[in-house]
Amino acid sequence: METITENQAAAIVPQKRKNYFSLLPPAFITIIVLVGQFTYGVLDNYLYLVAAIVTSLVADMFFSRFIYGTKKNLASAYITGNSVGILIRSNVLWPYIITALLSIMSKYVFNYKGKHLWNPSNFGVSWMLFFATSHVAGLSIQWGSNLAAMVIIWALGLYIVSRAKKLHVTLTYVFSFIVLAYLRSLITGDTFLSEVSPLTGPMYQLFIFFMITDPGVAVSTKKGEIIVAVLIALAEFGLRLGGFIYAPFFALCIVGPAARFIDLRNISLRTAKSPELALPGTI
C-alpha cells in the first residue's frame, strides 16, 4: 500500500546525495506484482492495475500543483497505485480509478499541520471495502499458498523495512498478531493455526511491509511507533472477533490517524514552547 516507501522515497529525494534506496520500495512492489502475475496470475486484468497506477500518478501531480503549486516526487503515488491495483478486486474498471483517486485525494483533504493523517491507500481501500461492497472485494488470491514464495517475499520485505529503519514496527506487529492469534484461538475454540493463518497470506505481506511501516504517517518516536503497532494489532484483534474480514486495514485506518493526530499535536505544542524543534512540513 502506500507505504513505507512512498513517503520515504519522497522524503529522500530532496537530498543532494543520490540515494538509490529511494527506488527500492517501488522496485520491490513492482517485482512482487510481476512475479505474482507471471507465476500465479494474481492480476485479473492488467488494465485495472495500469488504471490504478496512472490515476494515482496523474492525481498526485494534479493536486500537488493545484493545491500547493509545487511539483511532487511520484514514487509514493506509484506505490499507492500498485497497492490499489493489487488489494482490491472488482470485475469493473471504475473502482480501481475511484479508489486510487480517493487514496490520493485523502492526502490533500485530511491534512493536519501540513501532514496527512491516513496512509493514502489504506484510506481508499478501507473505504471501498466497507462502503462499496456491491462492486469491490479484497485481495483473495494467494501466491499459490506456497511456502517458498512466502519465504522469499518475507525475506525481501524484512530487508527493506530494515533498511528503512522500520523493522521494529513490522516485528512488533507480527509478534503482537501471533500472541493475539493465540488468545483468539482460546476464545473462539478454533485452532491456533487457523487464527494465525491470515499472516501467511499475501494480504498481510503487503500490509506489514508496505502499509504499517509508512513513514509518512508514522509517529515521531521509535517508542511511539512500537506502541502504535501494538494498538493496531489490538484493534485488529477486536475487529476479528467481530468477524471483519478486512480487519487489518480497518484497524490501521482507525488507529493510525488518531495516533498521528495526537503525535502531531504534541509536536506542535512542544514546538510552540521550543521553536527550534519544528520540522519541515511535507506531503
Partner: peptide, 14 residues
C-alpha cells in the same frame, strides 16, 4: 469470516 481466515493462508493450513 472464518472461511476467509483459513482459505487465505498457507497450504499447510488450508
Amino acid at each position: 469470516y472464518d472461511y476467509a481466515k483459513v482459505t487465505g493462508g498457507n497450504a499447510a493450513i488450508i
